[in-house]
Design a protein around this nucleic acid. Structure first.
Length: 255
DNA sequence: ATGCCTATGCGACATAGA
C-alpha cells in the first residue's frame, strides 16, 4: 500500500499535474494539502474519473485538505480536535483498508515571533494530544502531511538563509521532536537516514534550479505501520514540470 | 536589507505562503 502526501498549492491550478501524477505513480492513498477551495468546489468528478474516492475538508481561498483513495475511505475526524474556535481547515482523518490515515497541514508560523507563530506552536500541542489518542488505539496509523518544520539543519539548504524562519526555530523543532518521541517513526528519514531529501523548493530566487530546498513533508508511522515499512521517497521530478506546485509528492510504501 | 514567484479572491491589489 503506497500512501503519499502532496501539498498542491491550489487544486484549481494544479489539477492537470495531479491527474498526470496519479496516472503515473498510482498511489493507493493521497493526502492533499493547500487545496485552497471550498469542499463543494473540489474537482470530485475528475478525481473519480481517475479511479479515486475523495474526502474533502475545504476552505475559501486558503488551506484545505483532502484524502484521495482507491478503496473507500471512512472519515474519522474533520478538523483537529482541541479548539472549537479554530476555523482553519488543516486536518482530515479516515480509515482506508484498516489503516488510519491523517492529512495534516501544520501552520507555517511566519513571521516569528508573533500571533501566527503562537498559533503554530499551539496547533502542534493539539496535534500531539490527538496523536497520543491514535497511538493508544494500537492500530496501523500514518500521519501524513506538510509539517512546516525542518527537523534538523540537514533539512534546509541553508541555515543562514533560514535562520529567522519559523520552520527552523528551536521551539518548532522541539514540538516536532516531542511528537516523534511518543513513538512515531518518520518514514522518509527511516529509509533515507542522512543527507538532504528535500520535498519543497521555493518559486523565488531560482530555488529549484539551484536545488535550494527544504524537507518539510513527512509521513509519521505508528509502530504497527513502521513494522510494515518497505520504502519511502520523494517524486522529485513532479516539481520540475510546468506550472508545478512548490512541493513534491512524498510517500511511503507499507506491506 | 529586501524581494525574488505563485495562487486565490468578486479582485482592479492584497494576502499568504515558507
Amino acid at each position: 500500500m503506497r500512501i503519499a502526501t502532496y501539498n498542491v498549492n491550489g487544486i484549481g491550478a494544479r489539477l492537470p499535474r495531479v491527474l498526470e501524477w496519479l496516472d503515473a505513480f498510482k498511489p493507493d492513498v493521497v493526502c492533499l494539502q493547500e487545496i485552497k477551495c471550498m469542499s463543494d468546489s473540489f474537482p470530485v468528478k475528475e478525481i473519480e474519473a481517475a479511479g479515486y474516492h475523495a474526502l474533502v475538508h475545504g476552505q475559501k481561498g486558503f488551506n484545505g485538505v483532502a484524502i484521495l483513495s482507491r478503496a473507500p475511505a471512512h472519515e474519522t475526524a474533520r478538523g483537529l480536535p482541541g479548539d472549537p474556535s479554530d476555523e482553519q481547515s488543516r486536518y482530515l482523518e479516515a480509515d482506508v483498508e484498516g489503516v488510519r490515515i491523517a492529512s495534516i497541514y501544520l501552520p507555517n508560523g511566519n513571521p516569528q515571533p508573533g500571533p501566527k507563530f503562537n498559533y503554530k506552536l499551539a496547533w502542534f500541542d493539539r496535534l500531539r494530544a490527538h496523536a497520543a489518542i491514535l497511538l493508544a488505539r494500537e492500530r496501523p496509523t500514518v500521519l501524513a502531511g506538510d509539517y512546516n518544520v525542518c527537523p534538523t539543519d540537514e533539512d534546509a539548504f541553508s541555515m543562514r538563509a533560514m535562520a529567522n524562519d519559523a520552520l527552523v526555530q528551536p521551539q518548532t523543532r522541539r514540538k516536532y521532536r516531542r511528537l516523534l518521541m511518543q513513538g512515531w517513526t518518520d518514514g522518509l528519514r527511516a529509509r533515507h537516514p542522512s543527507g538532504p531529501i528535500y520535498t519543497f523548493w521555493d518559486y523565488q530566487a531560482g530555488a529549484w534550479q539551484r536545488d535550494n530546498g527544504l524537507s518539510i513533508d513527512r509521513l509519521l508511522l505508528d509502530p504497527l505501520a513502521a513494522d510494515r515499512l518497505r520504502a519511502a521517497g520523494v517524486d522529485k521530478a513532479v516539481r520540475g514540470a510546468e506550472r508545478a506546485s512548490d512541493h513534491a509528492p512524498t510517500w511511503v510504501e507499507i506491506g
